[in-house]
């Protein structure tokens, strides 16, 4: 034991599963303990549901009750917030601090960092959906068959990816101080115009024309379709649009990452 600690031997191997597990665990704890993050991701969607769900829950749209629509759309808002802020503001802040530089110097695999952030956002997605499912059931009697619920969960969790890419693109383009503000300014109008706060069909026609240019709209429509809503447009078209947005954001991220290299180390 004592000689083993004197010098690392090249024979010793790292425990990679444990490394990824710890990275994910602490990524989650880091943000869970950050009230600004856990509140905006988990509490706000529930709060909005309490307000808007009680007001419009009895109507129906796209073939489902608004009470169910809003449960899905506020869960989508939670997923978008979780991903955009963890990747956007998180990465910008960690670059600014120099934490990213320390990680890059360490032998941590870069994939561990991104995997952990992705899994963390997925965990928050599960939490926000559970919270909204309970709220919607108690308040409006919304209940879904288990398989439908799981399909919804899968769709929401997959939605982490395009918004993680969006977050990365902004996180690398923006400074650590401006990132949270700019992301809020982007996120709130984007989710609203996409019909995630108020059903898309209730928004003025010109807003409905803007929505297809926003990734949150396509994500929202896919999530609604998962519980049996009649989609505006087709599922294939929404999938294609999201894939295109993801590709563009990733390309922007890679460009900014390359430009950044050698300047702030991040």
């Amino acid at each position: 034991m004592t000689t083993a600690t004197a010098h690392p031997t090249t024979a010793a191997k790292r425990n990679l599963p444990r490394l990824y597990l710890l990275e994910t665990k602490y990524e989650f704890l880091k943000l869970w303990r950050l009230r600004a993050y856990s509140l905006s991701t988990l509490v706000f969607p529930v709060m909005f549901y309490l307000i808007f769900g009680s007001s419009f829950g009895g109507f129906s749209t796209q073939g489902i009750r608004v009470a169910a629509y809003l449960m899905v759309s506020y869960a989508a808002v939670g997923v978008i917030n979780a991903a955009v802020f963890a990747f956007g503001a998180g990465v910008a802040g960690e670059r600014g601090q120099g934490w990213m530089m320390l990680k890059r110097v360490s032998p941590m695999p870069a994939s561990a960092y991104f995997t952990a952030k992705t899994l963390m956002a997925v965990m928050f997605s599960v939490l926000v959906l559970v919270a909204l499912t309970i709220t919607a059931f108690l308040l409006q009697g919304v209940h879904l068959p288990v398989l439908t619920w799981l399909k919804l969960l899968g769709t929401l969790a997959a939605g982490v990816l395009p918004f993680a890419a969006l977050g990365l693109a902004f996180g690398y383009a923006l400074g650590p101080n401006s990132a949270p503000t700019v992301l809020n300014l982007v996120n709130l109008p984007m989710t609203f115009v996409s019909g995630l706060y108020i059903p898309i069909t209730q928004l003025p026609p010109f807003v409905q024309h803007i929505a297809p240019y926003l990734p949150a709209y396509h994500f929202g429509q896919l999530a609604l379709t998962a519980i049996g809503a009649h989609p505006v447009g087709t599922v294939g078209h929404h999938l294609l649009a999201l894939a295109a947005f993801t590709a563009v954001f990733l390309a922007l991220f890679i460009r900014a990452y390359r430009r950044d290299e050698g300047r702030t180390y991040g």
Binding site: P8, T10, A12, N15, E23, Y26, P107, M108
Partner: peptide
Amino acid sequence: ELFASYYPAPL
């Protein structure tokens, strides 16, 4: 604990 996990033979 997290940083130690990156290395093969940490303290």
